[in-house]
Amino acid sequence: MNRHLLSAADLNHDDALLVLDTAAELAALTDRAVKKLPTLRGRTVVNLFYEDSTRTRISFEAAAKRLSADVINFSAKGSSVSKGESLKDTALTLEAMGADAVVIRHPASGAPDRLAHSGWIGGSVVNAGDGTHEHPTQALLDAFTMRQHLAGGKGDLAGRKVTIVGDVLHSRVARSNVLLLATLGAEVTLVAPPTLLPFGVETWPCSFSFDLDSHLTSADAVMMLRVQRERMNAAFFPTSREYSRRYGLDVRRMNLLPDHAIVMHPGPMNRGMEIAADVADSERSVIVEQVTNGVNVRMAVLYLLLAGAQLGEPDGSDRTAEGTAS
């Protein structure tokens, strides 16, 4: 029974499609006058954020509120964590308050896993980014965005070519994307300087390269990763300018892309570093759309986890044929 979403690898092909299809139906809500559903009324969702975040926390908060859940926002700054409280004691406090789900972002890889399997709390745990490990809901919203543009909004991403460029080493987004996109049938190529590819990347379900230009001409989507200076305690490349010249997406490189290809970025962007401002603001850029889709995808995840879902066993029974609820 899968009560948690800790890794993109937790989702098999059917689970992933269930989340994306649910998100697609929920997206229709955005056009309605009343953007609120009663589905999670009386449930409590705690946003437990040990790291700074703008879009992910707001996105989870909006998603939970649109489903009528009660939302408690917890950020490490200004809490007892700054007095030295451990993750365990914080978790026990949340459990005592009756949290049905904990959305956790933590600088340590594996913290959500620890929280989910320690027995400290009884609710569902959703990984909203842990260290350099994973960020599964980002991968889901990226896949959702690609599906809207490249697959007519239906089915999986079989045969689509996705190029992920930049600081793969420090990127939880890249790892989750590679895992999920492989599940959905896409062909992923990582492009980065050798110093910014993680150890063991050859065992990932994707290919990798050190040359960006050659992987743009056939790409359906190119995803630029932020250079995470705050995690860099060594010199991974000589200068920012050199990095930008070799691995940044500028207008010349964007013009190498096929006409239908989209440009993505998980944000926050370093304009002028990994992505030129002209590219970020171009018509190919779906970066703002990614944020919109994030709310719908997170609503789908919260709905499927909290409304009693067992991801992996979508309910196949037929409501009306059974006549149980009509």
Binding site: D21, L26, G308
Partner: peptide
Amino acid sequence: LDITLYRDDLRRAPARALLPT
């Protein structure tokens, strides 16, 4: 009109896939 998200028995069964509205 899909009514899945408005059901009163959601917590009694595994979450259902949504149908089109």
